Amino acid sequence: MSGHNHGHGHSCAGDHDHDDTPEMGFQYSLYQKIDRENMECLNESVEGAGKEVFKTWEDRLNVEKIVESDVDEELLFNIPFTGNIKLKGIIVAGSDDETHPSKIRLFKNRPHMTFDDARIKADQEFDLHRDAQAVLEYATKVVTFSSVYHLTLHFPSNFGSETTRIIYIGLRGEWTEAHHHGVTICTYEARPSVADHKADVNPDSLSHEII
């Protein structure tokens, strides 16, 4: 995909090792809240492979479920959720070689992004370390990534290979059910009492509360 802009922005440090404890499977369960039917991965060499890297913690190192880029090293995931999430951390695992992605860029609530769209400044980005065991977590800015209904992950580069391979992407955080009730307008009318009968009531004195 020629014409992609491989800009180098500011990266935020925040990675740390993770212990392989039983509770990790619970913490990294946000993959269950992905709307897989509407999720898309751009520049995947095998259609549908991008969805396979969002898997259980126990299955995170299964190399039979990977995604590899197609015509160049870039990959872009558009990930809608079934509700709202508060993203607290992310793990990216690949092979311990040049195919491992070297950078990740995160965008909040921008559905159906393309590689051209990803030229804008990311909400957060990290320089990645090679992680073949899924032990490095990158801590996101929770204030920024709260109330997320759509997450875009852009991998613009790797460590020197023509294609990028990803084995596992883990998302840690909280999920809440989305409320699709639209905007509710409540109107409160000023009603004069008998004691206030001498007061003039302005018919336009209505209070509107938007919930």
Rank of each mutant, 00 (worst) to 15 (best):
S146L: 05
S147H: 09
F115S: 06
T144P: 00
D117K: 10
H197L: 13
R119P: 00
D116G: 09
L128Y: 00
F145M: 05
R165A: 15
G173T: 01
K141L: 11
S157R: 07
V148Q: 01
S161H: 15
F159N: 11
E189P: 08
A178C: 05
H179D: 12
I185W: 07
S161C: 09
R130P: 02
Q124I: 04
E137M: 12
P156A: 07
V148G: 01
E174C: 09
F126S: 01
L136K: 14
V143G: 01
L151F: 13
Q133R: 11
Y138C: 04
L171F: 01
H180F: 11
R130T: 08
A195W: 10
G173F: 02
G182Q: 02
D131H: 03
L151D: 05
Y188C: 03
N202E: 06
G173A: 02
D131A: 07
T164S: 06
I169V: 14
G160D: 01
L151Q: 13
E189Q: 08
Q124R: 03
L128I: 02
E174M: 12
H129D: 14
D116S: 15
N202R: 06
D123A: 01
A122Y: 05
Y138P: 00
D196I: 00
D196G: 14
H179W: 07
K141H: 14
T176G: 10
G182C: 07
V183S: 13
L171T: 10
E137W: 00
D196N: 14
E177K: 12
L153C: 14
E162G: 11
A132H: 10
A178D: 12
H180N: 12
A134Q: 02
D200G: 11
A199F: 11
R119H: 08
A134S: 10
F159D: 08
T152N: 14
T184F: 01
R119N: 13
K141Q: 14
Q124S: 01
A132N: 10
D131C: 11
T144F: 03
Y188Q: 04
V148I: 11
F145N: 01
K198D: 07
R165P: 00
A134H: 01
I169H: 06
A199G: 05
E137R: 09
Q133H: 09
I169E: 08
Y149N: 14
L151M: 11
C186T: 15
S146I: 09
S193L: 06
I120M: 05
E125H: 06
K121P: 00
R191P: 03
D123E: 03
K141T: 12
R165E: 13
A118C: 09
A195M: 04
D200Y: 14
V135T: 14
P156C: 12
E177N: 04
F159V: 09
G160I: 02
Y138A: 06
V135D: 08
H197W: 07
T187G: 01
P156N: 09
Q133A: 15
Y149R: 14
D200H: 12
T187Q: 11
E174A: 08
E162F: 10
H179C: 08
D127W: 09
L151T: 06
Y168W: 06
D200R: 12
L128F: 03
T176Y: 02
P192L: 02
I167Q: 06
H181M: 10
V148A: 06
P156K: 02
V135G: 03
V142H: 00
S147K: 11
A118Y: 01
